[in-house]
Structures are given as structure tokens and as C-alpha cells.
Nucleic acid binder design. Structure first.
Lengths: 229, 229
DNA sequence: GTCCGGCGTCACGACTGCGTAACAAATGGC
DNA sequence: GCCATTTGTTACGCAGTCGTGACGCCGGAC
């Protein structure tokens, strides 16, 4: 597995510690802040896989954090779960309108929250929830770090693994070299665009089997895509 | 044999005797107290594998026992099942927030409780629920602290034993060095990451037999895994 | 006290795989 | 068909990672 990174924004210290403890126990990598502005900074410097966002916090209000997360390119698609003491419909609607993916009303049990987080992650990033993804004759098990094609194991390097995993999480979609660098190498990496080509080649070589078509498609002057289905 | 140790904290003597009787019949090792403070003492001197905790007891309240168990390092990860006469949501949430793993409302049938205990133990400590764990040609008896490969006994040190046990509880799964430190050495340990490598080596050496493949897989830049099945 | 097993750390070496550059091939526009 | 652009392929130096042996330390046995 690759320890999904959570960002917890919560100003009730006791609750924050409890949630952090339980999620660590579930194998998550949790970072906590009680301040909205700091949350945006933390999210920008190391993009989390999911944000748990208290509705009422100091600094910036939850709804504002939500909006600003969405506005920033690197965090635009990070799923957000709102935690709130209020339970009225208005807030729930406003939260979901702002782009939240789920909504948990306090008081909640950690188990419930864990279940919700799992559900959202499974929906958005199946591999993060530890499920094996299958695209065509390819299968990738994120927890075992193992790739098979037509049932037989594939020897694959770390970078190619992450590259393939990213493709398999979005089958059929075309990614530019820049997008791949952001997603696979990290948004801060200062790598030549052409380096992607080389790793695409290495990936192709790794997953090649005689008599089968190459599932990695080159889209000229656009990027690469994994053949869906 | 693996006799999981239960600590029952219950001030209703009749109920306590009944539960104790039934669990002994299931092969559990049960100790009982009706006092919260004594429970903490008993738990500290001989860490149980699971605590059955009545919500309303003399001495210290259930929720307080729960908290103090969590606070103590040696008992921080012991699963707790709350027994309570109340059934209102508030208490349920408070119990789970305090770190309880499950919740059984009185009156309950002993069979239900036994099932719940089994479920929790299976989830938290697979090695405790069954006899010995077997992965491939390896067998590990958690209570006897004994490891065999292909039937022949293996001499293995304490740390390597815990390491192997953790691997065998999650066969095939890749663990980073940090995760292994948390799981095997304890989450508070301040140990060099590379120390894991050394113990991996010692484990490999211990379980090596001529002509058989090494079941410990190195996943470059990710961690280690035990070859599943 | 001595002995001893086991633990944590370090240093060295081997090796993997990464990023880049340079060249070859392919593609598309005209 | 020709040229410019884009992509495929190969080779290479280098940084990072891992395996391994050695060492000092500590705690328990005796």
C-alpha cells in the first residue's frame, strides 16, 4: 500500500487527536492543522489524497478553504469531506455545492468517518483504497506492488509502476507529458519533458508480451494514454 | 493452542460469571474484575488481548478506563468492546470516540458477544483468532513463539519473530520501513530506517533453507513484503 | 564480576534504475 | 517528395537504494 495522505483541518484539539490516532491505526498518513490558511499551505506543498475539513474553524472559514482548494490547480481534484456540528440542510447543500464530496455531521464515530473516507477514496482513487485495478488484460495490485498481464507477473521499476498506476486509474484518458510529470513525479519536480518518453518506452517494454498489442497509445502532439477496456 | 486473554470489567456478578463461564468454554483465558482501577492494574501487569468493558462500573467510569487504557503505551492498542445497558446514540458515539472497537448493548446473548469478540480479534490480531498462521511453507505459532518451515523448526530471535509475524498477518502486502517500525517496534520508537534492513537480513537468514526461494521480497524504493501463498 | 545473545548503528560496496543527451525513425503539412 | 516537428531508441554517467559484515552497547544469566 502507499499510505493515503489525509489533511485534517479541525480546531477541536481533542477530536483532532482522536481522529488522527484512529486513522493512523488504519494505515493513513495524517497531517493536522487547526487553521484554514495553514491548511491551504500544507495542501499546496504536499498534495493530500483527501481533506477532512471542519466547517467552523478559525482563520478562514471552511467554505472558503473549500473554494480555495478547488481554485488551486494542484488541489482542484482532491476529494473533501466536510465535518460539521450543524445538521441543517442549508449548510449541507452549501457544502456540497462548494465541491465537497461527502458530509459528516458531528457527533460521529471514528468508524463511521473511516468508512466514509474509504468510500470516497474507493470512488475517486480505487488504488488508494487498496483495491486491485484491472484494465484490459492488465491488473495492478497497489498493496502488493505487483502487476500482472494475462495472469503472468511483470517485472517493473518504481517509476514505471507509478506511471502505469496513474494510467490505470484513468483508463483511456490522454495525459500530456507535463501532466504526467505532475502526477507521477510530483508537481514540484524539475524534469525534462522528454524524460517521460523514455519511461513510456520502459513501461512499454516491461508490459510487452509477444503477440499482444501495445496498450500504451501515443497521441501525437498531445501525450499518451492507456488503451481503455 | 492459542488462548486469547480477555479482561472482563463488569460489576454485575451474575452476568460476569456467566460471561466468564461461556468464554472459558470457548477456550479463552478470562480474568474478571468489577473495579475500574483494578482493571487498569491487571491490564498493565499482564496485557490482555481484548478488554470487555462495562460502561457503568464502580471506581472509575467505563469511559475513563477506556481513555486510560489508551493512554498507557502497553495497552494503547488493545481492542476494547463496550458493554452497556444504555442504548442511546450519545453514549455509543462517546464510547467509539474514546477508542472502543465495538459496542454491545445489554441484554445480549453470550453467543453474540462471542461472535463479536471473535470478529474484533480476527480484524485486529489475526494470529490470535486462529491457531497458527500458515503462509506458503512457513508456519508460525503465535502463542508458542515457534516458527517452522517445511515442518522443520526455525531458530529465530524476538524481533525477527515479531517481524515475521507481522508479515504473515498480512501476506503479500508491501510495508515501508516506516510502517514496519511502527508495527514491529512500536509507533513511538526512534529507530533508524536502515535498521529494518538489518533485521530483514537476519529474518532472511533465519528462515533460509537450501534450495528454497527467499520468501521475503524487496520492493525497491517501497519496502518489503512476504511472498503471499 | 564475566559471559553472551541480541540489538541498533555505521560504513563500504554492488547494483539498480533514473535523467539526460544524441541520434534514428516516423509522422504530418505542404 | 521534402522538410519540420514529434516521437522512438540507445547509451551513459550518476545518484540513490539495498545487501552485508563489523562494531559497540546493553541487559540478563550465571
Amino acid at each position: 500500500m502507499s499510505a493515503p495522505k489525509l489533511l485534517l483541518v479541525e480546531d477541536d484539539t481533542a477530536l483532532a487527536e482522536l481522529v488522527e490516532y484512529r486513522f493512523r491505526g488504519e494505515g493513513y498518513d495524517v497531517r493536522t492543522t487547526d487553521d484554514g490558511d495553514e491548511a491551504l499551505l500544507l495542501a499546496a506543498e504536499d498534495t493530500p489524497d483527501l481533506v477532512l475539513l471542519d466547517w467552523m474553524i478559525g482563520g478562514t472559514s471552511g467554505i472558503e478553504v473549500c473554494r480555495r482548494l478547488r481554485r488551486n490547480k494542484s488541489t482542484a481534484h482532491v476529494p473533501i469531506i466536510i465535518l460539521t456540528a450543524r445538521s441543517d440542510e442549508d449548510d449541507r447543500v452549501r457544502g456540497l455545492e462548494t465541491g465537497a464530496d461527502d458530509y459528516v455531521t458531528k457527533p460521529f464515530s471514528p468508524r463511521e468517518l473511516i468508512a466514509r473516507v474509504g468510500a470516497v477514496l474507493r470512488r475517486v482513487r480505487p488504488a488508494l483504497a487498496g483495491e486491485t485495478i484491472t484494465v484490459g488484460d492488465l491488473a495492478l495490485d497497489p498493496t502488493a506492488h505487483r502487476v500482472t498481464r494475462c495472469g503472468q507477473a511483470i517485472k517493473i521499476g518504481p517509476t514505471e509502476f507509478r506511471l502505469l498506476r496513474h494510467f490505470m486509474e484513468h483508463p483511456g484518458r490522454v495525459f500530456s507529458r507535463g501532466q504526467l510529470l505532475d502526477a507521477v513525479w510530483g508537481s514540484g519536480s524539475d524534469i525534462e519533458l522528454r524524460t517521460v518518453d523514455v519511461h513510456i518506452r520502459r513501461l512499454r517494454q516491461a508490459i510487452a508480451i509477444p503477440g499482444a498489442a501495445d496498450p500504451v497509445r501515443t497521441v501525437r502532439s498531445a501525450g499518451y494514454a492507456l488503451e481503455g477496456v
